[in-house]
Design a protein around this nucleic acid. Sequence first.
RNA 1: GGUCCUGUAGCUCAACUGGAUAGAGCAACUGCCUUCUAAGCAGUAGGUUUCAGGUUCGAGUCCUGACAGGAUCACCA
Length: 596
Amino acid sequence: MDIQKALTNTLASAFHDLFDQKVDPDSLLLQATRKEFEGTYTFVMFPFLKLTKSSPEASGEKIGNYLLKHLSEVSAFNVVKGFLNISLSPAYWIRLFEELYLKKEIGSFPQKESRVMVEYSSPNTNKPLHLGHLRNNFLGFSIARILKAYGYEVIKANLVNDRGIHICKSMVAYSKLGNGETPETAGIKGDHLVGKYYVLFDKEYKRQVRELMDAGMQEEGAKKAAPWMEEAQQMLVDWEAGDPETVGLWKKLNGWVYQGFEATYRQMGVDFDQYYYESDTYLLGKDIVSEGLEKGVFFKKENGSVWADLSEEGLDEKLILRADGTSVYMTQDMGTADLKYRDHQIDKSVYVVGNEQDYHFEVLFKIMRKLGRPYANGLYHLSYGMVDLPSGKMKSREGTVVDADDLMAEMINTAREHTQELGKIEGFSLEEAEALYEILGLGALKYFLLKVDPKKRMLFNPQESIEFQGNTGPFIQYTHARIAAILRKAAQIELDYSAARCRNYLSLETVEQSLIFQLNDYSNKIAAAAEELSPALIAQYLFDLAKEYNRFYAELPIFSETQAEEQAFRVALSAQVAKTIKSGMGLLGIDVPQKM
RNA sequence: GGUCCUGUAGCUCAACUGGAUAGAGCAACUGCCUUCUAAGCAGUAGGUUUCAGGUUCGAGUCCUGACAGGAUCACCA
């Protein structure tokens, strides 16, 4: 039953019967009626006054009456200025509710014959994850779930940047100052340990640069001539040559980092189906260079470097291969794009990468299109904005990064304090209580990072950002826990709230109507979130739903002063809201508790 | 300097893609726990949507131009 379609079809025939005008039903748009007016859907008359040749009010009246006569679901209408507000009958609402209530699965779409890869996280292995990575990981994981719900087969991929000069920096510092330290002996996570040496490298390197400059060297020269930098560069060369000692050290440090990352990912609640490592893929793409030269997509300069000329597309020339024949970032990414396609025959590929790489991906996608890749039109860059601190941008060198592990631990701790303050853990075992703190702390954090439009950059204030009231994860989780309590009580008194029992309840309150409307809207939101790659739409939806439910909860009694069918319906409605919240929060990667 | 993104209440964010009197949350203030969880609900206050033009029945949304913030424009990744 698609009421919007029925309405637009009837509107079109109204134009035909009343005004002798042919109108395409698909061109007629309905919008949700604003809260302060009576009705569910609103049809705006203004664009059609030329067809009706009468005033907005008169046209609205005529069409409203026509709807009333020809569509049984329409129970009333009113016209305010040029807006025709349409009300639907209680019978319609109850029927719609029953339809939703009886569905086994909520918010699921028919399986598409289409496979999509979502690449996210993609960390460097020289330092631990920070707040920016949290936004990336939560976004990627959530988008993967949303696309899956929308019917795609989804592959979550992590392209680990495990080689390069940055790793070598940590390696140099460790070989100088490490003294055989390990995560075990140091008592810290492997990624943090390696990060420590990365910072130590930077410190010493800066000192060396300053020393050289004091001795009269220019800054640029000093930066290259600093002994540790020269060693790091040499290490990179050795690594590429496969020098056993260098590779051994590299493996050791990376192994520690992976152990650390794994713990962080587990705490974040994200996972991957496929890992790619740049140490395996960094040489890929070179054969595409020759292919591109043959096809005339690329051209060679006198010194032997290879370029793509994108000036016709409004961009400029872009380097594809260095004069010495070594590859650049773009070369690798072309190769990896092919690799992903070869491995999984994907139709779409989503790259969850920060917006500082907008230009890079614009170029990459254009090149793949020019090369005639079959998957080129399915490439998307989910470009998200940076997370700023009140002090401005996070800078690892200035020690202003917010560490991911620390932040999550802090969140869980705050949840613990807050819950204990409210005295809400009576009857909880210790394990149950700890599990709850984790659900709430991470829920607050994830919701906070996901509720904002991904492409906008956002502000994170450690002191104030994470609340447990208002538009927050815990608010929605709380709503779920409240409903769970109702369902426990219903079970306890053995209340029958089957669909058949709700059917006779026809004196719906407006809150109840609007809840049914919102429940029905869930699948539309999933579709929109999937198409726009925006979990924020789900977050916003869940907040609105929870808010509306809490209004219902405060205004209407359930177990007392109610008729049998009224009671059954309200419990069933609550159950459906809880189900939707659980499902929607699941799309955000957030758990919901039964009690809190 | 070129290109791209952003600018909405004191703060953090919405606004169904051009529709009605621009909405939430936080912070402030006022009510509501002897009924299903007060991490809640109801209310008050808070706006020249950065500015100036333009397009039309109608603009926060579209176009032009300023202004402000950010990103990017490497034989870096």
